[in-house]
Design a protein around this nucleic acid. Structure first.
Length: 429
RNA sequence: GUGACCAUAGUUUAACGGUAAAACUGCGGAUUGUGGAUCCGCUAUCGAGGGUUCAACUCCCUCUGGUCACC
């Protein structure tokens, strides 16, 4: 069985449905992947995630390496067993954290020693071999190389692992962006080589069937990452280079991806003719709002992740079909809540439950939502929990926001199969 | 009852003879390969009355309220 099967191609766009096969089960695409950086989707446990029918979640190499350390997780039987999650997991390689920790390095040049950068308050130093960085936890010095990033991910035991890349800031000059991109390509080759050649690990993470996990082929799938910032030629060159390598999937990374949707759309339009259609396409960091999901799915993206629904939940920003302006009942009576919302709320599709107007609102967060939070609790109660900073607020809100995104993805997959994707998109945007 | 001190934003506190600063709260906004984090706006005619002065939250008097000490 191949890793990825396309099950339906939309007739009017690049949108498509598919299935990714992993040792921990199948994933229907296009899929939104909730983020669980530190081996937990904040405020939820694995039973909550199963109830939400999350198909796959993310964890982060950088954070788990620093704490508790991959050896401890490996010793506990791997990430799945460690966090009691038996469905697929994807680990990010840590490349993005290097970017976010060292944002301004390229402006000041690359020569010098780590102490210099430390003194400047910069937390990472990139060279051709790898990255030296200081921990955000205790300031201790660490180093990632393509080889170590893959080895850590082998020990963590996620189903899908990412190549170690360098994500450059968009305001870097073109010379540096090219340099970093070429380095990312060399690192991609090194990740592949290390991934394929590794023979054994001290402790093999457990597989769901009770057999031992085997490093390498067909057990963990490795994705390459296209970089090149917002330069057309660099993006095309990177797409060609990454596509030519033996990766199981193709990711598109960069500061703009997800953050700036106009740039994201352009980048996808540039690379789409180049990247192989039979591999999963993954835009990293996309999913800030419902409209973002439509934009990338329309351009043939199969996987995406974003911290937005979970982080927003913790800050009281709750997604909604219909923003009130008046009450949610009136919105329903309006006839088409989605259109009502699109016109009246700048298409943000969310409310801030902290707002005083929800103090005595006895309707659910979203009257059209079927999640357990909306079935059982009122806006007034959620408002109170947030004001009182009660821990239940975070869990109920996270359940709602994730349900909203995962359910929207189910609708999108169905619409693609019915060749009605663009019609569904019009309802939302 | 006597004496001392105090009264400034919802709360706790600043400053200054030239129309008031801050923290927290409150009311909004931001949030993108996760810090339950953080950031950004907005909110006061200074207990009441009178006096001195070009000008008083600031100095003086009275009242009201409070705190402490003594009887």
């Amino acid at each position: 069985m191949s890793f990825f099967t396309i099950t339906h191609q939309d007739k009017h766009s690049l949108a498509r449905t598919g299935v990714i096969h992993t040792a921990h089960g199948d994933i229907e695409t296009p899929v939104f992947m909730p983020v669980g950086t530190q081996a937990t989707v904040k405020s939820l446990d694995s039973a909550d995630l199963e109830n939400l029918d999350a198909q796959i979640i993310l964890a982060n190499t950088y954070h788990l390496h620093l704490r508790p350390g991959e050896d401890i997780i490996n010793d506990c039987g791997g990430l799945h067993k460690f966090m009691n999650w038996n469905r697929p997991i994807l680990t990010d390689s840590g490349g993005f954290q290097v970017f976010s920790l060292s944002k301004n390095i390229c402006k000041s040049g690359l020569s010098g020693n780590p102490d210099y950068y430390k003194d400047q308050g910069k937390l990472a130093l990139i060279d051709d071999e790898g990255v030296t960085f200081t921990s955000h936890l205790d300031g201790s010095t660490h180093r990632f190389t393509p080889e170590s990033a893959i080895e850590i991910q082998h020990k963590l035991g996620a189903d899908i692992i990412m190549a170690f890349d360098e994500c450059t800031p968009d305001d870097a000059d073109e010379k540096y962006t090219r340099e970093a991109m070429e380095r990312t390509h060399k690192w991609a080759e090194r990740c592949l080589t290390y991934h394929k050649n590794i023979k054994t690990l001290k402790h093999l993470p457990d597989m769901p069937d009770g057999k031992s996990w085997q490093a390498g082929k067909n057990k963990q799938f490795l994705f390459g990452i296209i970089q090149g910032a917002n330069h057309k030629e660099l993006r095309e060159e990177s797409a060609r280079a990454i596509s030519a390598m033996d990766f199981d999937g193709i990711a598109i990374g960069g500061e703009s991806v997800g953050f700036n949707m106009d740039a994201t759309k352009k980048i996808l339009d540039w690379v789409n003719p180049i990247i192989p259609k039979n591999k999963p396409h993954y835009t990293m960091g996309v999913g800030f709002s419902p409209s973002d999901l439509f934009e990338v799915v329309e351009r043939g993206v199969d996987m995406f992740d974003c911290v937005a629904p979970t982080r927003m939940a913790r800050n009281g920003a709750l997604f909604c079909h219909c923003e009130e302006r008046g009450t949610s009942d009136e919105a329903i009576q309006f006839g088409s809540p989605r259109l009502f919302e699109a016109r009246d709320n700048g298409n943000k599709h969310r409310i801030n439950i902290n707002n005083a107007k929800y103090r005595d609102d006895k309707s659910p967060i979203d009257p059209l939502c079927t999640c357990s939070t909306c079935k059982n609790y009122t806006r007034a109660y959620l408002h109170h929990l947030f004001k009182a900073e009660e821990l239940l607020a975070y869990r109920l809100a996270t359940i709602h926001n994730l349900h909203f995104f995962l359910n929207l993805m189910r609708e999108i997959r169905q619409a693609i199969k019915d060749n009605k994707f663009l019609e569904l998109k019009k309802e939302w945007i």
